[in-house]
Amino acid sequence: MDAVARAERLRTLMRGATPDDVLAFFDGLPPVEVADLLGSWRGAELPTGHRLDGLLGRFGWHGKRFEGADAAHPLVFDDGRGGLVEVNPALVPLGLVVRLAGLLRNPVAAAAFRVVRPLLRTRRPRARVRMVRHRGVVSATMCYDALPVHDVFRRVDDDTLLGLMDLRGDDPPFAFVLRRQRA
């Protein structure tokens, strides 16, 4: 499948897909090198019925930023004033978020997050990128410093990646898309 066909398939999946459909698509995508990730990326959730579907967007997730193999920012959010803020994933109670995902879909939870977001802010990178074998293919993977999370990437085209959040004990994985931001 060429890049044009892969992009079209992704557009179809973005309207909603089963985890099996997304995993089959992911498995057919080419790997990504660490250098290919450098820069800022706008994120979007790929709806599969995962319990985290809809949460990142509701809370203002913008995407990810990669400065180098040892300097990655996994959680970049809109700051509500036209800027961006990096959030320290170690300060996000991920286990609680996963267990209470249904309750967090209300406007009160999003408003509360906006209030505490300044307390979660970091300027330091909170992840690294390494080449990791996942589902039989070695590809660039963001390894969070303080959480049992790896975000594994495959290439849709030069400016679009499909990511899977590999969280220990969470199956199937949460799927998302990253689109390169040009300066």
Rank of each mutant, 00 (worst) to 15 (best):
W61C: 05
P31R: 04
G102R: 15
E45N: 10
D53F: 06
V32A: 09
S40T: 13
H50D: 05
G49R: 05
V87N: 01
L38Q: 08
R9N: 11
G68R: 01
D36H: 06
K64E: 04
P107S: 13
F176V: 02
A69H: 04
R128E: 13
R6N: 10
E67T: 11
G83Q: 11
A72D: 00
G63R: 09
L167C: 06
L55A: 04
R128N: 08
T48H: 03
R117F: 04
Q181T: 15
L10Y: 09
L96N: 12
L167Q: 12
F26Q: 05
V177N: 11
R154H: 02
L56P: 00
V87I: 15
S40V: 09
A69Q: 06
L29N: 03
G68H: 05
K64G: 00
D21H: 12
Y144D: 07
L84R: 12
F59V: 05
L29H: 06
D145F: 09
A17Q: 07
L91N: 07
R114P: 12
L164M: 11
F174M: 03
V34E: 13
V115K: 05
A71E: 08
V97W: 02
D158V: 12
L38I: 12
V34Y: 03
D79G: 03
E33I: 03
A175H: 03
R135T: 08
A127E: 00
R124F: 06
D27F: 03
E8I: 10
P93H: 14
D170F: 08
V115R: 15
D145K: 10
T160W: 06
L46S: 09
T18M: 08
R133A: 15
G57I: 13
F174P: 00
L161G: 06
D2A: 05
R114C: 07
L103H: 14
P172W: 04
L119C: 05
S40Q: 10
V156H: 01
R179A: 05
V34L: 11
V85A: 15
V138M: 06
D21F: 09
D166F: 02
A127T: 02
D27H: 03
L38Y: 10
P93I: 04
L120W: 00
F26R: 02
R179Y: 02
G54T: 03
A109M: 04
A127P: 00
M131A: 14
R51F: 03
L120M: 08
F66I: 15
D151H: 10
G95W: 08
D27Y: 01
D20N: 14
R124N: 12
M165L: 14
A127V: 00
K64L: 08
F153G: 04
L120G: 05
M131G: 10
D171Q: 11
V149D: 03
A90R: 15
R126H: 06
R123P: 00
A17L: 07
A69R: 08
R128I: 08
A175G: 06
D171A: 12
D53V: 04
R128Q: 07
G28E: 15
G60D: 07
A110T: 03
L161E: 07
L75H: 04
V156Q: 02
